[in-house]
Simulated scan of single mutants.
Amino acid sequence: MNTSIVGRQFELTESIKSYCDSAFEALSKYNLDIISAKAIISADERNGKKGFDVEFAINLAKKDTIVIRQKDKDLYAAIDLALDRASKVLRRHHDKLVTHKNSDELKESRIIVDEVSIEGADEIVPTELELYKPMEVEEALTKLKDSGAQFYVFNDMDAKMRVLYKRNDGKFGLY
């Protein structure tokens, strides 16, 4: 990453340059292709009040340039605020790249994971629910009692999906 630090109406010291360099190094944790980063620091005096303007221009590969401007009375505080805003933008961009990858790549990785079998692990066997046949509540109650399960999902005669479950007091509930 190419970095440049420019001072306008302001003389840069070595400590300010090293502080900006460390700020730019903190942005490299997002593993984005940062081509160059430029910091323009200028002194600003308006209405008798002194302040500093910090502008970060970050060039990313295959992305537009990100420009962040920050003003503050304290130079180091302005750099920190600009760094926070830049890291927020880069984190969002990184999250988009990570979570919105090509769906083909995700499908391929899922297929590979599905083919791997671990010895000694519990096996999950998919079963089809018999939801397509409507049944009476009494019929579902007998199936629940016979199965020994905690709940039973079924479609009633009005084509509504219902859940019959065992309560703690020994009675049955119906959703």
Rank of each mutant, 00 (worst) to 15 (best):
A37N: 04
K143V: 00
A43P: 03
K96Q: 15
V153W: 02
D44N: 07
K73L: 01
T3N: 08
E138P: 03
S28Y: 10
E11W: 03
E11M: 10
E25K: 13
H94P: 04
T99E: 10
K133S: 10
I124Q: 01
L83K: 02
V54H: 01
D95Y: 13
V113T: 15
K96T: 12
A37V: 00
S109M: 13
S28A: 14
F151V: 07
R85V: 05
L90H: 05
D64A: 11
S36V: 03
I118G: 09
Y76P: 00
R110H: 10
K160A: 10
Y175Q: 15
M1W: 06
N168L: 01
M135N: 02
A86N: 02
T3S: 09
L83A: 02
I66E: 11
S109L: 13
D64V: 06
V98I: 15
K160H: 14
G51H: 01
H93L: 15
V116G: 07
K29E: 13
N102K: 14
K29G: 08
L131A: 12
I79C: 01
E11T: 12
E108D: 11
R46I: 02
E123S: 13
A61K: 14
T127S: 11
I68S: 04
D74H: 09
S147K: 05
D114N: 13
K133I: 09
A140L: 02
R167H: 11
V125S: 10
I66D: 07
V6N: 11
D169A: 03
D53P: 02
K50N: 04
F52D: 03
D114L: 12
K62L: 09
I118M: 11
V163F: 03
L60M: 09
D53S: 08
S18C: 03
C20I: 10
D158W: 01
N31W: 09
E119I: 15
E128A: 08
F151H: 08
R46T: 10
S36W: 04
D80N: 15
H94N: 08
A39S: 10
G48E: 12
L97I: 14
I124V: 06
G170T: 02
R85Y: 09
G48T: 08
T3K: 06
A39M: 07
D146Y: 08
Y19N: 07
A57D: 03
K88F: 15
R110Q: 11
I5W: 00
M1K: 07
D95P: 07
K171G: 05
F52G: 06
G173C: 01
E119C: 09
A86C: 06
P126D: 11
Q9T: 02
L97G: 13
D156P: 00
K17L: 04
D146H: 01
S22P: 00
S103D: 05
M157S: 08
K88N: 14
I16D: 00
F154L: 02
E45H: 09
D158V: 01
S87V: 06
